[in-house]
């Protein structure tokens, strides 16, 4: 701060504030008009690995909640036609302006499993952790402290209000419940627009401004793949990925 020239400082502040207001009023509209999409599908080539069943017998509530389905690990979930679920797609290169998202996503603890298994989100985006279970869980994400993301560990007893959080830096963060050690999921924190594949492996990244990009697909077991795409103003680009089963 320049204490010797208060008038100059005030003027600079005024300009800065006006620019900010302008950006807020004008920015999104300009982008929205030109936004395109990136779509595609992600498949697994080869035999999907065997997903172990989960024995929840330590907590009778969990056993009862899963009485009608056999719970199993969700590290690799393959749908019809080899479509790979829970793959996160995002733009790793080429973004020029930051995007903003207002939707608050929910990470739910249901039947002693995480739903969704992978929650993708933008840096700084607020998300809610909720519980539908009648047993207490603790939410214990494991970020790398070097990234600037701060680890936390908090219980959510039945009926407790949602926990609202956000992450500071892009990172793929494992989240666990220690009370139910099999409960395992991911917070995929990326910069810019993102999408997660559905049960058939399809995805659509919305609100992509026109430009040349590198799209990355990330899967928790198979890692990352990238492709270059060009999105025209208001147009749609396609990028399909195939991971090789190990």
């Amino acid at each position: 701060m320049n204490a010797h020239h208060p008038q100059k400082f005030a003027a600079a502040m005024l300009v800065a504030i006006l620019i900010c207001i302008g950006a807020v009023l004008v920015g999104p509209k300009v982008n929205a008009a030109a936004d395109g999409t990136i779509t595609g599908s992600v498949k697994l080539n080869g035999t999907a690995p065997h997903m172990k069943g989960i024995d929840m017998s330590k907590d009778p509530y969990c056993v009862k909640a899963n009485a009608n389905n056999a719970p199993k690990l969700e590290n690799v979930v393959v749908g019809s036609g080899g479509g790979l679920e829970n793959v996160v797609l995002y733009i790793s290169e080429g973004l020029t302006s930051p995007t903003e998202s207002t939707a608050v996503q929910v990470f739910n603890q249901k039947n002693c499993m995480y739903s969704p298994h992978v929650l993708a989100m933008d840096v700084g985006e607020t998300f809610k952790v909720e519980t539908s279970d009648n047993t207490a869980h603790n939410i214990h994400p494991n970020p790398n402290p070097m990234t600037g993301n701060i680890p936390w560990n908090q219980s959510q007893p039945p009926g407790a209000p949602p926990v609202e959080k956000s992450w500071k830096a892009p990172e793929f963060i494992e989240v666990k419940c220690n009370i139910h050690p099999w409960m395992h999921g991911w917070f995929a924190v990326v910069k810019g627009p993102y999408a997660t594949t559905d049960a058939d492996g399809n995805y659509t990244i919305k609100d992509v401004p026109a430009g040349n990009y590198t799209v990355t697909a990330w899967q928790e077991v198979y890692g990352k793949q990238t492709q270059k795409v060009t999105v025209a103003a208001g147009g749609s680009a396609k990028a399909d990925f195939t991971f090789q089963a190990k």
């Binding site: 017998s57 330590k58 907590d59 047993t135 207490a136 603790n138 560990n153 219980s155 220690n178 009370i179």
Partner: peptide, 11 residues
Amino acid sequence: CGLGHYNMKAY
């Protein structure tokens, strides 16, 4: 052993 101590059990 921590926050889930009361629920650390097995049959």
